[in-house]
Design a protein around this nucleic acid. Structure first.
Lengths: 357, 357
DNA sequence: TTGTTTTATTGAAACGATTCGCTATAATAT
DNA sequence: ATATTATAGCGAATCGTTTCAATAAAACAA
């Protein structure tokens, strides 16, 4: 005969029932403040609550989820947590989830497809209620997301807008951001401006360049191809610096003088700063530099980097709002279409830019 | 009469049982390769496995955990994910957990006590199998951990060694690290060395200073109190830079010349670099600077920072190993004492230090 | 032949919570 | 006095899985 372990460690709802003198049903109703709780007199509630507290009762989420199919958990998949771009977004996600009483399960794909798939599997098994994908600097292909669609799990992707319209997205307005960055340099009197463009395969590269071109057209600024270089396609956030360094040296070698340089992103800009320092070119005295992103180190640098700031915490929070809405919609059996948010970037003027002498 | 939803979406073990023609018990035994599976003929196994695959059966983890009390989940509590010191450790944790097929639930206390407690509660409810606490730059009091002890959840704390011997820890050898950093400067000929010490309340501050003192004693180096300043106690990782800046200015004001400066950590060192630049003092030409930690931006800086590197990924991995051992021990009803690991720091020589002229 | 062991499979009882439907009393209306 | 309704509480089924105990057929031994 199977019998309860007498010296068991977990306290169940039945224990609370026993010590409070009521049934498990009543305890459940009271503790969850279910609709039926309106009939339960206050003193009964008090007795039950006291019993629960003194016993140190914690409802078992597994038992709970087994019935309710809800577990207040969302998956957060990043592609490389090492990337400083990730951190503030993660903070934004975490904070918003906390407000909504969700807990994040963290998965880091290390930019490996296999790992991404394995994690996706694990998250699906765990019946996450929503999924937030942080597609930092990634070449993500779409088929991976078929799985997600199949499972009907509300999904939001940050940093990339997918062609498929089944998945929500939060991105920054790269085009307007680049426009404002260049506008800043132009306003300072710069006309000979060099560009280190992003990898061609990245959507954000294209968008940012569109902003540059639009500004050039609007003002008649000339974009000299000899002052333009491209970052190679195969990158990794931390070699971005090296690439920026190399590309800037390439630019210097071309002997086309420039008084300002716009880098694809802050990491690239750091490489640029290094190359310029090596060449004895002072920033901002001899050359202004503008980055993009405003990752944490940018403000620490000497000189502090002027850059176009992505509202990363806000992006994380926005993703959670979208996910949360979709989750409650699903719970209430409503359907809701994919939502696409594009947040504004903000120019942050620091020490790496100054008026042309 | 309650009846099954005919167009339900989840496929259960009973569905597999039905289509394969065996009972749920058998299916369970086969799919988990339980001990009893040794009696099951291969062709039965094959039939069941095929059925499971074609139906797309994923066992429900909640039902599973409800019985087995295991859920392959550990809580990871950080005190401020924004701190660049966190990221590599998190990576180390994540990676090691992945190897062991665990999934991390991320909690960020934002350095608020209330938030820490709330998260602890949530994690406990979720019946995490282990807890890893990342006590970066925190003033953590012990009572918080009473809860953990009560629940008998294997816990490892990174970055801090607790007096209580019930909780394992992973720390870096701060003393030896500081010793080697100073030794490096000394070897370059520096004798007039300034120090920006860490906040007094931090254990690592004390340990690092012990290393300094030991080196001074070993070599007869004089530690002039007028070249020593202390960081204030109330800090936050990102104002660490400002504090470093202020303290260095204070040092400069004192008119006691120095040819090298050791900062409590890299963040502080960034502040120092800024202050020195402002004063027109070139690094490393006129003054060498050494940091501690080797956070990501340190290598990006111009000049790249010479620093004492904490093996952060390894620390995260070590914490997981300890936690994992404790978890399996608990599962097998063995008891295992707290383990304390102290990892070696490693001097990383970059561009911010050079021999005294 | 009968008895024992091995092989193959299953029913039923948990795990811990929620919830529907039922009962029983008290309060109110007719 | 009886019918009706609001108030309180409980029993039992259910969620999807694992696992123990039981059964039954086959294989083997005596």
């Amino acid at each position: 005969m199977r019998q309860r372990d007498p010296n068991k460690t977990t306290v169940t709802i039945r224990d609370v029932a026993k010590t409070s003198g009521f049934s498990a049903s009543t305890v459940s109703i009271v503790l969850n403040n279910a609709p039926l709780a309106r009939y339960i007199p206050p003193q009964t509630k008090a007795r039950i609550q006291k019993a629960a507290k003194t016993l140190g009762y914690h409802p078992n989420v597994f038992a709970k989820s087994l019935r309710s199919k809800r577990n207040h958990t969302v998956g957060v998949m990043v592609f490389d947590i090492t990337d400083p771009y990730c951190t503030p977004i993660l903070r934004g996600i975490e904070n918003a989830l906390y407000q909504a009483s969700y807990l994040p399960i963290l998965a880091d794909a290390h930019n490996e497809r296999g790992r991404f798939e394995r994690y996706l599997e694990m998250l699906l098994e765990r019946r996450i209620e929503g999924l937030i994908v942080l597609a930092n600097w990634l070449y993500l292909d779409i088929n991976l997301l078929a799985d997600i669609e199949r499972g009907k799990i509300p999904t939001v992707i940050i940093g990339r807008e997918l062609e498929s319209d089944a998945i929500s997205s939060v991105i920054v307005d790269d085009e307007a951001g680049a426009y404002s960055g260049l506008s800043h340099l132009y306003g300072l009197g710069h006309r000979k401006i060099a560009f280190v463009r992003g990898p061609k395969a990245l959507a954000s590269s294209k968008a940012r360049w569109r902003g540059i071109q639009r500004f050039a057209k609007d003002t008649g600024l000339e974009l000299d191809p000899r002052r333009i270089v491209d970052l190679p396609d195969q990158r990794n956030p931390n070699v971005g610096v090296d690439d920026g360094f190399r590309m800037t040296e390439e630019l210097l070698k071309r002997k086309r003088p420039f008084t300002a340089l716009m880098a694809y992103d802050d990491m690239t800009a750091f490489g640029t700063l290094r190359a310029l320092a090596k060449a004895g070119i002072k920033v901002p005295d001899h050359c202004s530099v503008v980055g993009f992103d405003d990752i944490n180190p940018s403000q620490l640098f000497v000189p502090a980097l002027t850059t176009v700031r992505q509202p990363m915490e806000a992006m994380g929070a926005a993703a959670v709002v979208i996910a949360n809405d979709a989750i409650t919609a699903t719970a209430e059996n409503r359907t809701v279409g994919a939502i696409h948010r594009k947040l504004a970037a903000e120019l942050v003027i620091r020490e790496s830019t100054r008026a042309v002498p």
